[in-house]
Design a protein around this nucleic acid. Structure first.
Lengths: 327, 327
DNA sequence: CTGAAAGCGCTTACAG
DNA sequence: CTGAAAGCGCTTACAG
């Protein structure tokens, strides 16, 4: 691997001049610039990022922490972050924190600092950022919390409302609202939004707590749904996986969708799309979340942290499909 | 951020001694070691990786390139790579090369080199590694190619055989084999394995080419399947998404699964699991692929490239579920 | 067991 | 427009 000295020698100039050409900085005569560029091309020279980072204290790296790549929401977010960052010349240092383990989270933050990342994007799902990193930080997937931390949040309250309003418009009479642990702010907001909309419309509803978002949990929840509750004609599912298992259980029970049972999911994932019947769902716009988070962190780096508005909101929207009556 | 000089000053020793404590190298008296460690802890000192990388020419970073995070196969692979690498103290520099774009691929490789990665793990799916990187390289998801490049390959030929043998054992009479573009080695091997097993058993079969693995392609392929072919009682699907849409189309046509139609998928993804009925599939063991690739690259780095056996094989296995007759 | 010093490959004032 | 030199924060022979 050639160094900047090699290039300088070959061009018969000093390393300072080569550096100026590399960084498009300072004045360099066209002639020397062309000469240097030709040599760079021909030698396949690439500047050593470690040396740059050491001096400039910026690495061009962004640390990204997510709990689960198999969750299509996170997969979409990461894909969008990567596409956005690459446009600004940044690269992703990835940490998959399976199961949202606090120790692994802290280790990842430490490793990010050690690697001089310029910023950090992290999912806030059921994790507490302890010793706040010294780098610009953007959290996504958290609740609508006003604590002056930079966040990209999906408006879950509106999302819950949207799910409920969809069922109201399509003539549901009695709704079961599924929800996950209310200790998680996004879940709670979503739930409250749905309750508010149904109450406002004087619609009858019952609620079912589900333990988590694994397939197994969804299957037993779907089974419990039909044994525990009666006379309901619509469900706001905890998410798309739950919506899917409810649809399957309903079909096993010969319950017609959407005539006898309407279902609204939450996520906007592929699961809702591949299902038969396809499922109406509240789309969280994962890739918008990722793009927004990527742009946010780049802004923060450019303007030396401190955003005027630490909250960037992403509005969910409804994808109407076959599991609800036509509106 | 404190530097090694700050620690040395506080401890009243030289930076060399601090460095020795940091790296557990050389002889240091217990007393000074304890003192230095105490100060490190108390100041939250973390060594600057850029400085280390600059001197040692190793960064602790592994570049990883994959084409699609939404594909559960890749999601599993990356998750397993990350878990494996973290155990050895390495971190992932991620590049999502959506659509397997050759230019983006080359750019990512260049960025990896610039960042002094210690090794590269890349999916080989429909991409050609051009100017071979100077770093240890492990390719996965490629065909069984004997070109002395380090590869983790799923034995697709066996996979195809397994799919066919499963149907043979469960009494299928006429099979349709779906397959993607045969220009892709893994696809071709899979196809050839299935054909070989069916031929060997003197079973009748027909073949259907599918364009790709998107949901749309799968849907139209599934539709075409039932209009184009007749009298078949089993399908080896191009992958799990295709298997899923075939199952849905069959149900729409009132064809009973598995009595009137048996289906075998390929991937071992969640899609085959969430489906109703659940789908028998050939599991590629994505997380084994990831773990193997992670261990492979660590081995290569330790032993200065050049593996004795540049091919590490992962054996697929059948997951018997409801879409085939009990064996 | 410990320290002084060179050097890893860059960038950026500072001079000219 | 260009160069000599200092310095970013480490590690590792080399001396002692």
């Amino acid at each position: 691997m050639p160094t900047i000295h090699d290039i300088a020698d070959l061009a018969g100039v000093s390393v300072a001049t080569v550096s100026r050409v590399l960084n498009h900085t300072g004045r360099v005569s066209d002639k020397t610039r062309d000469k240097i560029n030709a040599i760079i091309k021909q030698t396949n020279y690439v500047p050593n990022q470690a040396a740059r980072t050491l001096y400039q204290k910026r690495s061009g790296l962004i640390g990204v922490i997510i709990p689960d790549l198999n969750n299509p929401f996170y997969a979409d977010v990461v894909t969008a972050i990567d596409a956005t960052l690459q446009q600004s010349g940044y690269r992703i240092l990835l940490a998959v924190n399976t199961g949202a383990n606090q120790t692994k989270y802290d280790e990842s933050i430490a490793a990010f600092e050690q690697n001089n990342v310029d910023g950090i994007i992290s999912s806030d799902f059921s994790i507490t950022p302890t010793n706040t990193p010294t780098k610009p930080l953007v959290l996504f997937n958290s609740g609508l919390i006003d604590d002056n931390i930079n966040r990209v949040v999906v408006d879950n309250y509106s999302g819950g409302q949207l799910a409920a309003k969809t069922l109201i418009k399509s003539g549901a009479q009695k709704v079961v609202i599924q929800h996950g642990p209310l200790s998680l702010p996004p879940i709670r907001e979503r739930f409250e939004g749905a309750v508010a909309a149904l109450t406002h419309a004087h619609l009858d509803y019952e609620i079912q707590l589900v333990s988590d978002f694994t397939l197994d949990a969804a299957r037993s929840a779907a089974e419990a749904l039909f044994t525990t509750f009666h006379d309901f004609d619509a469900v706001i599912a905890a998410n798309d996986i739950h919506a899917l298992t409810i649809a399957q259980q309903a079909q096993a029970n010969q319950i017609k969708i959407p005539q006898a049972l309407q279902i609204v999911g939450f996520d906007g994932s592929l699961y809702a799309e591949v299902s038969q019947p396809s499922l109406t769902t509240v789309d969280q716009h994962a890739s918008t979340v990722g793009t927004t988070a990527g742009e946010f962190i780049v802004d923060l780096i450019k303007h030396h942290s401190s955003a005027a508005h630490p909250l960037r909101l992403v509005k969910p929207s409804v994808r109407l499909r076959e599991s609800t009556m036509p509106q």
